[in-house]
Design a protein around this nucleic acid. Structure first.
Length: 314
DNA sequence: AAGAGGACCAACCGCTCTTGC
DNA sequence: CGCAAGAGCGGTTGGTCCTCT
């Protein structure tokens, strides 16, 4: 594992802002040779820039399709949401914003959004102990604000159209991320969490039309859980509880719509680190969701969002 | 009008991971 | 298996522009 020499320590390399002429040379080189061989670029073109500098300039400014400036409110919203979900994973965040680069998003965050996010985070902490960022499916305020008890639906929060939009977008985003992060090595985790066959029968990943339906949601829950979970069983368990916002001591779980075609009503999670694997492997295993997700099920069940859900398969 | 301070952002730095020999 | 080079990522720096006094 060697380390590439730093440009500043290699004599003859130029630093600082790129000139139009340098850009032209770089652009022509990449057009002919593709985005490879940054190290030989300087030798072949006479450009006095190190490999890293060339790569950076191309990826962030010269590459076709790069959007510069004017970050829209939608993009800003997405960045905030993704950052809450992923933290400073700028390249991952950038991957969800076509035409934007990790560097631009990082800069934008540091100069604009980091200030914006602070009051929101403080408010969230004040109003309710929230699950840790990255462990909760929904990070918007509406989703954190109302955990519903199985015995009491009276505190269900009415969702505004804007909230609904947020839920759809966040869910879509999460599924895309899950898919992106899924690797072959993850498959063994399925055995750790539950009996795969019985789970698939009870909660297929896709319905008959190859769309995600309310029946599928527990699988999405579990998928997200598995991918955000650490390796040890104890951590796995704690992650589950964290993810469902249960570590605050309130173990009341949530309930799905009673008119659901499939009974995946939420039951009390009566699991401990010692027995939760066993619980998860039975047909009565428990899935906890928050109010936003319940609303999501309901809407999806009505078929309103069918087109929004096709992403799960693609 | 001028200068001090802040905001912005392009670019660099240092590190880890991947790949090829 | 170990090493070196390349690639990629997130943190940081520093130059330029803008705003306020």
């Amino acid at each position: 594992m060697g380390r590439a020499p730093c440009c500043s320590k290699v004599s003859g390399f130029q630093r600082g802002a790129w000139t139009a002429q340098e850009d032209t040379i770089l652009r022509e080189y990449v057009t002919i040779h593709g985005e490879i061989g940054w190290g030989t670029l300087a030798k072949q073109t006479g450009l006095k820039r190190c490999a890293k500098s060339c790569r950076f300039r191309w990826l962030n400014y010269l590459r076709p399709g790069i959007k510069r400036g004017n970050i829209s409110t939608d993009e800003e919203d997405l960045i905030l949401r993704l950052h809450a979900l992923l933290g400073n994973r700028w390249s991952l965040i950038a991957g969800r914003l076509p035409g934007r680069t990790d560097n631009e998003i990082k800069n934008y965050w540091n100069t604009h959004l980091s200030k914006k996010s602070l009051p929101q985070e403080k408010e969230a902490i004040k109003s309710k102990p929230a699950p840790p960022a990255g462990d909760c499916l929904f990070n918007s305020n509406v989703c954190h604000s109302n955990y519903m008890s199985p015995s009491d639906n009276s505190n269900r929060q009415e969702l505004t159209p804007s909230d609904e939009e947020q839920i759809v977008r966040t869910s879509k985003l999460l599924s895309e991320l899950m898919e992106e992060m899924m690797t072959e090595d993850d498959s063994h985790l399925m055995d750790l969490t539950m009996n795969k066959n019985s789970a698939e029968l009870a909660y297929p990943s896709f319905d008959i039309n190859n769309q995600c339906s309310p029946r599928c949601m527990p699988n999405l829950v579990d998928t997200q859980f598995r991918h955000s979970a650490p390796c040890t069983e104890n951590e796995h368990y704690e992650s589950l509880l964290h993810w469902n916002g249960l570590l605050s001591g309130n173990s009341d779980l949530l309930i799905c719509p009673s008119d659901s075609p499939v009974d995946f009503r939420i039951q009390a999670l009566d699991a401990t680190p010692d027995n939760y694997l066993e619980q998860m492997s039975t047909e009565n295993f428990t899935v906890a969701v928050d109010a936003g997700m319940v609303e999501f099920y309901k809407r999806a069940q009505q078929g309103d969002w069918a087109s929004e859900l096709r992403y799960v398969q693609t």
